[in-house]
Computed example of a mutant assay.
Amino acid sequence: MKVVAFKRELQGTGASRRLRISGQTPGIIYGGTEAPVTIALDHNALYHALKKEAFHGSVLDLELDGKVQKVLLRDFQMHAYKQLVLHADFQRVDANQPVHVKVALHFENADVSPAVKLHGATISHVANEIEISCLPSALPEFIAVDLSNMDVGTSLHINDLKLPEGVTAVTHGNNLTIATASVPAGQVSADAAAEEKK
């Protein structure tokens, strides 16, 4: 995905406010061997890009003064109630250096799992993203989570995930829970009552 940016000379609250009024969003590019550069981006293009999941978890081509550099979206600030992007931070990436990024989880096959199919259980998604480390070229858009083997009372953890080649989960020593399967409380008592009537 491509982002077009312009160098921003004026800084400060007033300059940023004027930028936003003119339909642009202030931002910054940092990291790597070069100094940080303050930039301006087209607000509408950025706002719509932020709605795409791939924009958050992909290496982006950022064009600045005719030169393209590889960056990751690191942070952005939204207005409290307006549909307005206030600021965006991008980090330069080196093709030979691993990056640490949060990537979305896509849950699949819940409807064919024993928990749902046989017991009418509910599978709760405890986490919707995980932190990973990999080279920029190996960065996945998302990580698929196969729920087809989940049964009632079981949990799926980070260590159970099948990660793409070259990708490792950053767990900080914790095997965090990703999903759990449990039967809703009302259903358990209804099943018990049905058993008693037999």
Rank of each mutant, 00 (worst) to 15 (best):
A190D: 01
G173H: 13
S189T: 00
N159P: 01
A181D: 11
A181R: 08
Q187E: 08
V188T: 02
T177V: 15
A192L: 02
A181M: 10
V183I: 14
H172M: 12
L156H: 03
T180A: 15
S155P: 15
A169D: 08
L163S: 01
D191F: 10
T177C: 14
G166E: 05
N174V: 09
S155R: 11
A185M: 05
H157L: 11
V170A: 04
L161V: 00
A169N: 07
E165K: 01
P184T: 09
A169R: 09
L156N: 02
S155F: 13
S189W: 10
A190V: 06
H157Y: 13
S182P: 06
L176S: 10
A181W: 09
L163P: 03
T171H: 13
I158C: 03
A169K: 05
V167N: 03
T177K: 10
P164N: 01
A192D: 05
V183R: 11
T177D: 09
N175A: 06
G186P: 04
V188N: 00
A185N: 06
T180D: 13
N174M: 11
G173P: 13
S155W: 07
T180M: 15
P184I: 06
N175F: 13
A185S: 09
K162R: 04
T168D: 06
G166H: 03
S182R: 13
L176A: 09
L161Q: 12
L163R: 00
S155D: 13
I178M: 03
T171E: 14
T168S: 09
N175K: 14
S182F: 14
G186C: 02
H157V: 07
G186E: 10
A181L: 13
H172V: 00
V167C: 07
N174K: 15
N174H: 14
I158Q: 10
A179G: 13
A192W: 09
D191L: 03
H172S: 02
N159I: 01
L163Y: 08
T171R: 12
A190Y: 09
I178N: 12
A190T: 00
D191R: 01
V170W: 15
G166F: 00
A179R: 12
A181P: 12
T171L: 13
K162D: 06
L176M: 12
A181K: 06
T171A: 11
A190Q: 03
P184H: 10
G166D: 05
I178F: 12
N159D: 13
N175S: 05
L161M: 08
A169W: 14
A179V: 11
E165N: 04
V170L: 12
P184N: 11
H157A: 07
A192H: 09
E165T: 01
G166S: 06
N174R: 15
I158F: 14
D160W: 14
V183H: 09
K162W: 01
S182A: 15
A169P: 06
N175P: 05
